[in-house]
Every structure is written in structure tokens, then in C-alpha cells.
Design a protein around this nucleic acid. Sequence first.
DNA 1: TTAATTGATACTAATATAGTATCAGATGAG
DNA 2: CTCATCTGATACTATATTAGTATCAATTAA
Lengths: 148, 148
Amino acid sequence: MKVLTKNTDYAIRALLALAARKGSYLSAKSIATEHDIPYQFLRRLLQEMIRHNLIVSKEGVQGGFMMQKDPDEITVTQLIEIFQGKVQVSECMFRKQICGNRANCVLRHEIMRIESVVQSEFEKVTIGKLLRDLEAANKVNPTAATIS
Amino acid sequence: MKVLTKNTDYAIRALLALAARKGSYLSAKSIATEHDIPYQFLRRLLQEMIRHNLIVSKEGVQGGFMMQKDPDEITVTQLIEIFQGKVQVSECMFRKQICGNRANCVLRHEIMRIESVVQSEFEKVTIGKLLRDLEAANKVNPTAATIS
DNA sequence: TTAATTGATACTAATATAGTATCAGATGAG
DNA sequence: CTCATCTGATACTATATTAGTATCAATTAA
């Protein structure tokens, strides 16, 4: 069971790069190179994040992407929802045709409890928090800390 | 993001059916019919559970499957591990070739914390517990409760 | 003897994930 | 003004995972 797919993983790294250089435009190319993310793949992720108003872009020479939303307001839960769909423990909750007894399903109760635990745990992790952790680690050992 | 795949979902239902009739053999066919699980699919799941000593089987006429392990000792975490692989939040933890900086990755810290939270939540849910919940629900309203 | 059953395994189909390619349009640098 | 550098949009391919089907041999109780 893999919780974070490459989509989400790459998106987090890209956002960390942008958050670290808040206010300036970074090109997809530079982010891709620096963080070993497939270029075209990254471009699609960035466009998706624009659609969700996490970042903005500038076209043309010297263009690129820039942080828009406050990094402390961007949670891993949100990124999972964007790139992997809403956290759901099993299908029965959302597809009535599969489970005609939603209200009485004993699995459902446990499933929903765990679902909310998972969501709230990932909500505690924001891009802002990760960035501060990263910077703190770099202070202790300037060459060691990484996000890869 | 779907946490439980059909494998695991079906396996839980089958185990609940077997736990409810502890001590007697139920055929794959009867379980499949009763719980709307594709027959051949279910058979593979049952065989896998035999290999993990959760259940035993008897071949031939009047054969079938029977609970072996104590239902209270069977956790959803175990079933996820059997059918979906060990819970892991991202690949970087297990594939060094992807992440050469395991010790210093700031994502890794959060990821491992959440991983253990998820695991322990699913560990609280055992087949025994689900069965008791199901039976309690049936007492209140004999026709309402279900595991589908 | 035979129908009902599991053991083992191979196969196909559908879906999700990962990654690549292409071309049009914008824009700053020269 | 032109051109190299960018993003926007979208189509495409490849791979892996999940879901489901089919088949045949072996076992066993009636």
C-alpha cells in the first residue's frame, strides 16, 4: 500500500522549491533539473497546481512559476486530494450501487473513523512546516538536508 | 486515494462469514453467493489466507474453509499487508536508489510518523471486533445490519 | 462411481500511474 | 523585429496494479 504517489511526491518537492524562493519565478526546467523530476511530468503537475490557485505562472522568457498561496495553508491532504483523489478507505462509502446498506455497514463506521484520522494527520503537515524543518536541518549541517 | 482494495475488502467479508460460523466448513461457493464476491477471485483470496494460517480448508464434497486463527488476533493491518503489501507512505523509504539521503530527508520524518499512525489505527480493527459490532447491530434490528 | 469441492496456475480486462512528445502562443533580450 | 525561452494545452505511450475469468487435476463424501 503506497500512500503518496509520484504525483504528490513531486508536487511537494516543487512547492518546497517555490516556497524557498517566494516572490520570484522559477522555471519548470530549473525545478526539474534541481530535484530530479521528469520535466514534462512536472509541467503537468504545475499546471494542475495553478488551477487550484496554489501557484501562479508567467509566460515567456524569464517566466516560470511562483508561490501564490501561503505555504502554511497548503496541506499534504490537499495535495493528495488534487493528485490522487479524496482520501477514501473503501469504495462502499461513495458508490451506493456497490453498497446498498451504507447506514448499517459495520465496516463503514471503522473505515470513516480511520479515514478522518489519516486526513487529519496529513493536514498537520504543511509546505510551510516542511520548509522550516528543511531550513533547520540545513543550519545544523548545511550540506546534509534534502527533500529528495 | 483508496486505502482498501477489493482484495482486502472481500477478504474481510469472507473472514467475517467464517468467524460467524466458527468450527464448521463453508464452501467458497456459498460465501461468494452470500456476499456477492466473484467466485474465482474469492478462491484465490482464500488460498492466500490459508498460506498465512488464518484459515484451513477441507477438500472434496462437504469441504470448504474454516477459521483457524482467533478472530481477535486478525487485524486489518495484517490483511492489508497480505493483499496490498506493507503500508508505506512513499517509495523513498524503501528504495535507496531513489532517495540517497534517507537519514536527512525532512519528508521522511513526517511520512514515518503518519505511517505508524495509520498502521496502529488499522491494528485496532480486528475481525473479532467487527463481528461483535455486526452482531450487536443485528440484535437491535435483525434485518438491517450487513457487512456489504 | 460421481458430483462437489479445493489446489494450482495461467490468462484476460480494466484502471491507475508514470512518463514522453508536440505544437501553439506569450514575452523579454538583443 | 526576431528569436530563443518560456508556459498552455493536449495527445500519446508504457508500465504496474487491480480485478476478474478459465481450466484442469486431485480429493472426498455420499
